[in-house]
Design a protein around this nucleic acid. Structure first.
Lengths: 111, 111
DNA sequence: TAGCGTTGTATTAATAAAAATATAATGATA
DNA sequence: TATCATTATATTTTTATTAATACAACGCTA
């Protein structure tokens, strides 16, 4: 018996950021391209684009700086705000997961 | 900006119990009928039944004692194990929610 | 024994989510 | 100027989830 959890940031009750966007942004940071990141995560480009677009719209600021055309066709790079966001989200979610497991054991130990 | 979370109990990686089943069980306890509980929660009976059936199957013990026929058509009543489960889950989830909010503020204060 | 509101299923319909596809625009390079 | 991989989007198709419906069995009561 174990506990599993999900957390996401909301604004006016709407989901604006969570694990999915975070994973995607990290992959973009690594590969320099939203298209490549989507492929790597077995996700359609349109879905990946939708995730970023929605998050940016709701957050009110840009997460990706995009370049289209040119050598390699272009690419996508994280804005400073995106870097801060994924860092804070990571710290938060790790600490949250550990805390939750502790509380879970307190009430469901032995089961 | 706020945090929202979901947690559920798993067994061998499979979701076996969470907020949905917990809410449903409480309503059954209150109304004495799975059918009435489903209506009260704007849920089809078949869905409600599926939730309970799945949880019981995976947990390996009964959550509801059911009676069919007779005055009022029958009804459903919580087993002792179900009562313990919802009590522990409630204690756990309340404490978890409070802890999570604290951690969230630590990393996203001001935003 | 007829009627009632349940439980327990199976089957079908409706809705939502996800994925796939298509297409235009971009701009460095050869 | 032709090529290329990308972004940005709209549209369509597929898949998955959820809900609705239907119906037999049950057993108390009148």
């Amino acid at each position: 018996m174990n506990i599993k959890s999900k957390f996401w940031i909301t604004l006016d009750g709407e989901k604006v950021f969570g694990k999915g966007p975070c994973t995607l942004l990290k992959m973009v940071e690594k590969l320099g391209s939203l298209n490549k990141a989507a492929k790597e995560l077995n996700m359609s480009y349109s879905k990946a684009w939708g995730i970023i677009n929605r998050a940016e719209r709701l957050l009110g600021y840009s997460l990706l700086e995009t370049k289209t055309g040119g050598t390699g066709g272009g690419g996508s790079y994280l804005t400073d705000k995106a870097k801060i966001l994924i860092k804070d989200y990571d710290l938060f979610s790790n600490e949250a997961r550990i805390s939750l497991e502790g509380i879970f054991k307190k009430y469901f130990k032995g089961l």
